[in-house]
Amino acid sequence: MDAEVVSESIEDIEIQLLLDALYRHYHYDFRHYARASIKRRLLQARTQLGYDSISAIQSAVLHDETILPRLLNFLTVQVSEMFRDPSYFRALREKVVPHLRTYPSLKVWVAGCSHGEELYSLSILFAEEGLADRTMFYATDINPAALRAAQAGVYPLDRIRLFTENHRLSGGHSSLSDHYTANYDRAVFDKSLRKRTVFSDHSLVTDAAFGEMHLISCRNVLIYFDRELQDRVVGLFGESLVRGGFLGIGSKESLRFSAHANQFADFVRTERIYRRNAR
């Protein structure tokens, strides 16, 4: 590639200043998020929140904290789906669960849980496999609104067909409809699925390890981080897992480039499931 130096655009300067402001005033740290996606989201926020420029967002959010939650929804919230990548859940069920069964009690961390689709998927899977009563789930996110949505466990009914199909492909041996009630245009998931779940505000960027997990599932979160931040987070996961604990990441993510990769071994390579080394 040409090494042409393109001078930084005004918009890019404004984005950097806004991210600095969010960190310095609110301690939300997006400075090491992959830039192309964060820019796309900020430009959407500018249009949809009705500002003329990124600088105008910066001024508004610094002077009016009620703007922050609205901005966070652009910067963090993602739509996911239950049992997304069914083969991942099938691998957990067939390859990881037999190991988990050997523990009298289990801790599972869904890091960056967003609206909770992954949490409920795992909770259903653990119930189906008879592990629910011995498992504590920890569902964390930096966005309080997302955590509230995860805690509510309510999804649009028109998404259920996809969730049901995914669940079936994942090897589910209950019917997904056993786990929710339809209420007008919404599916309300059974609260027994979250009775052993702790919802918590936790930042992978700035907070410390979360101890003694047997399984961490964090998919399509690392993809939004730059290499430096990915490296930090992989280290955090290593510290948070018991020896022999499992880590599942997104199908397009990899530990390959992390300085902490040597703490992990491939467990189900095709599904990006890793195992923390015994030493």
Partner: peptide
């Protein structure tokens, strides 16, 4: 990315 690398997203 402006750095000349690929980025994927699940937005």
């Amino acid at each position: 990315e402006t750095s000349g690398t690929i980025a994927l997203s699940s937005d």
